[in-house]
Design a binder for these strands. Sequence first.
DNA 1: GCGCTCGATATTGTATGCAATTTGATCTCG
DNA 2: CGAGATCAAATTGCATACAATATCGAGCGC
Lengths: 219, 219
Amino acid sequence: MSLAADRAYERIRAGILSGEFAPASRLREEELVRVCGVSRTPVREALGRLAAEDYVIVTRNQGAQVKTWSDADMADLFELRALLEGHAAARAAQFIDSAGLQLLKGNVQEMEAVFRSPASNEQKTETFLRLNGQLHEAIWKAAGSERLENLLGRLIEQALVVRTAHQFTMDRIAQSHQHHRDLVEAMANRDPLWAEAVMRGHIRAALVFVRQHANATSP
Amino acid sequence: MSLAADRAYERIRAGILSGEFAPASRLREEELVRVCGVSRTPVREALGRLAAEDYVIVTRNQGAQVKTWSDADMADLFELRALLEGHAAARAAQFIDSAGLQLLKGNVQEMEAVFRSPASNEQKTETFLRLNGQLHEAIWKAAGSERLENLLGRLIEQALVVRTAHQFTMDRIAQSHQHHRDLVEAMANRDPLWAEAVMRGHIRAALVFVRQHANATSP
DNA sequence: GCGCTCGATATTGTATGCAATTTGATCTCG
DNA sequence: CGAGATCAAATTGCATACAATATCGAGCGC
């Protein structure tokens, strides 16, 4: 919202996403004052917003701590994503105009180019994730429901907490890329059921990937 | 969260739901200080929460105003409700235990009793709405997804802003009651698809009712 | 009369001080 | 030695003062 509060919000959120503030660690207001360079009032406002977005948990008189994510939480989150993003995809397939469709096609072509380019895998991953985010957001917008768009924005941001911890393989990117091409084809054919089915599968695959990686690294 | 902030939150929310604070009216902090009996700090915290829950809109340096609901917003909201509550019903049909099922059956029997009682229509409506809320919440809980439960809680509370403005007819209550009985029957048969279908229909019927009433009263 | 600028007033944003509560280290007693 | 009581330090909750910004009407030029 306001300048100082925004600054605190961005700074704390970045700290959580980067791992600077570890899951389950307590966030003391005075410490955040030092880190953010603003007073306690905007820090508290930022913590309130972060709590509303499920980044932190605030307990009365006991301050804030970074939220931890159990496997069940993850499954929950991705099931909701599959439901809501599937719905968004179906609506988008119905309502998208030719300009929006061109946008999606262009996005997929960019991905294609990146995928075939001689860049390093790390660079490819970075670019791919950016384009991926843009594609999904374009689909939410095309669905034409502001409320749905907001809801998805929040849920996906939550999933980011986990995502950034993972290294993507080229196989995984290729799979995801194919899903995107299918999605755009479904939209071009104005086929809501197809679009929804593809999107649901896309999200389920993402969950499985996250899970496999979690199992591989946790012990 | 904290005591004073909670008090402010409840008071302002009640004011919005009761119509004391009209849609689109501006909420000045000093005025809320007088009304709530706490200082500006907890008032601002309460406004932040209300903004996160879509009761109000806060613009930087321009304060808060009560959110207005267009027809498109309503349609949006109910479509999301249908999707999410349908999903919750399906999950509940899969996972509910016999104790939970007994709870639902008891609730429906209570409704039956109220429906046949000699109370005034107004009393019946009041009791019915309370039992209706309990039934829906029980179903969300039975779905076993905390995130889904939270999401639905917020969405339904938003729908309440509109609901309280309407007078229910006995026909409408009878229709709704039949839906509830179908729902419980579907759950008793562990039929997720049936439960989901009934719930979706239930929500769509609610939207149509709200719309009809809105059209009847707006001019 | 109409639109614009300007400034007094009202309102929101931020910092800070004090009160209330929690924390956790130390001491006591079984 | 361990469980519980106790109290100082740390931390959060609330109120208030001050700074920054927006609002809105009066005055001015056209």
